[in-house]
Amino acid sequence: MDLGKDPLALDRQVCFALSVASRSVIAIYRPLLEPHGLTHPQYLVLLALWQSSPRSVRDLAETLRHEPATLSPMLKRLEALGYLTRRRDATDERQLAVELTEAGRALRAEAEKIPYRVVERLGMELGELEALHAALTRVLEATR
């Protein structure tokens, strides 16, 4: 494997490109989420819940690759916004169940516009974004 003349050149580092791209893409989401009082991490929680609700905190943490302790403040904030509820699971008191409220379910209709606006803002072909997503998914799998 040959990494070229300068394997430490900043502009050749995958970690640098991922870091800057991540911050830049998340910045596109910010003005789209602000009217709903959401941050990007909170939006990811809602995406997971729109996919399946109710869910345990442990399941959400695994899905989002967060520690449950990191997730708790986000869930509290989303509950304060009226988008979800947290309650002890009736079948296992040790588990905390997270469920969308009516307002949380209704927000999905508004949120469905967000991916289209992000794709438009990025100005990339859908095929390019799908290929990027596939490559990033392989990166995620390699880092598990």
Rank of each mutant, 00 (worst) to 15 (best):
M1H: 02
L140C: 02
F16H: 14
G82M: 01
Y29S: 03
Y116M: 11
D89G: 01
Q51P: 07
L96K: 05
R12F: 00
E34M: 08
K113M: 09
A90K: 13
A131N: 11
L8C: 07
A21D: 01
L100G: 11
E128A: 11
T143H: 06
L18H: 01
C15G: 07
F16Y: 14
I26W: 02
V14K: 07
E79H: 01
E79W: 01
L71V: 02
K76Q: 12
I28R: 07
A17Y: 11
A90W: 03
L126V: 15
S56F: 03
D2S: 15
D2P: 00
R86E: 14
L136H: 03
L60P: 00
L129N: 05
R108D: 06
S52F: 05
L33S: 07
L33Q: 04
R88F: 10
R138C: 02
A9Q: 10
A111W: 07
P41W: 04
V14G: 03
E102H: 14
Q42N: 10
R88K: 15
L132F: 01
E34Q: 11
T39S: 10
L64G: 03
R77V: 12
R86N: 05
P68C: 05
L33H: 08
D2Y: 13
A106I: 04
R65S: 12
K113D: 10
R108Q: 13
L64D: 04
A106L: 12
V139L: 14
T70I: 00
M1L: 05
L75G: 05
S52W: 03
A9R: 13
L10M: 12
W50N: 12
P73G: 00
D6T: 14
P31V: 10
Y43R: 02
Q13Y: 00
R144N: 01
E67N: 10
K5E: 13
L96W: 05
L81M: 06
R23L: 11
M1S: 06
T91D: 09
A135D: 11
Y43M: 08
L107P: 09
A131F: 01
A131I: 04
R77Y: 07
A69V: 14
S56Y: 00
M124R: 11
A97P: 04
E99V: 07
R12L: 13
V45D: 00
E93G: 11
S56E: 11
K113Q: 12
Q95R: 14
A103S: 15
I26M: 06
V118C: 00
A109F: 08
T70K: 10
L140T: 06
V118H: 02
V57A: 03
D2A: 06
E79Q: 15
L107K: 13
E110G: 04
A109G: 09
Y43I: 06
A111R: 04
E102T: 15
A80V: 02
L44G: 01
L78G: 06
G82L: 00
L78V: 02
E128I: 08
A27E: 10
R58Y: 03
C15P: 01
L10T: 15
W50Y: 04
